[in-house]
């Protein structure tokens, strides 16, 4: 009985290992060395692939998951209600917050009765997965296509509300509509949902 010898290929590029003896030409290494050197030499004149970062920036997709933003609603009130769901969902445990109760004279600042007095994201822990955004029931937190800039101090990577909440000014609001699916955008038109106004 002869068993048929099978060669398995796991990828399209896999090669069967060959242990055949090197020929004389291969043994003296030289032809191969010259060939290799000519290849590297040709690279001297190739276009450089480097992107000169601070001066030139690579184009980022609009749905890139970068630095977070805490949204305000149309009247400029902070949407976040400090429910903690984002922190709970965060796999990197990057989010911490302290909740506070809204006072009567703060109605124009916070949308809900409870708000986040302190809201911090540690950008060094964050893996920019976007789960916080997905978890948020109030559409308060979103990731943007901005990059977290480098810094010399670790403390400076803990972003508080000063850096996360978007500006009050209507023109300076950060547009996150690109990050919302058409289904979500459709749903938002339904003004019967208290959520959406």
């Amino acid at each position: 009985m002869t068993e048929e010898k099978k060669t398995y290929t796991f990828t399209t590029r896999s090669k069967v290992v060959s242990n055949k003896k090197m020929t004389f030409m291969e043994k003296i290494y030289f032809p191969a060395i010259i060939k290799g050197m000519l290849i590297t030499f040709s690279h001297l004149f190739k276009k450089k692939t480097t992107i000169q970062y601070p001066e030139v920036k690579r184009n980022i997709a609009e749905i890139y998951r970068g630095k977070h933003v805490l949204k305000r609603d149309d009247e400029g009130r902070e949407r976040c209600t400090a429910c903690g769901l984002c922190a709970l969902s965060c796999p990197a445990e990057a989010i911490t917050m302290i909740a506070a109760e809204r006072k009567a004279d703060e109605m124009h600042l916070y949308r809900e009765e409870k708000y986040a007095k302190v809201y911090e994201i540690n950008m060094l822990r964050c893996i920019f997965c976007g789960l916080c955004e997905e978890a948020c029931p109030k559409e308060a937190i979103f990731l943007t296509n901005e990059i977290v800039p480098s810094n010399y101090e670790r403390e400076n990577f803990i972003y508080g509300k000063d850096k996360l909440v978007e500006p009050m000014d209507k023109d300076k609001r950060i547009d996150i509509s690109k990050r919302q699916t058409t289904a979500v955008l459709e749903f938002k038109k339904d003004k019967n949902q208290s959520h959406n106004n």
């Binding site: 590297t40 276009k47 692939t49």
Partner: peptide, 8 residues
């Protein structure tokens, strides 16, 4: 080294 590897 940079030039050989298409860097600056």
């Amino acid at each position: 080294a940079g030039f050989f590897q298409d860097r600056h």
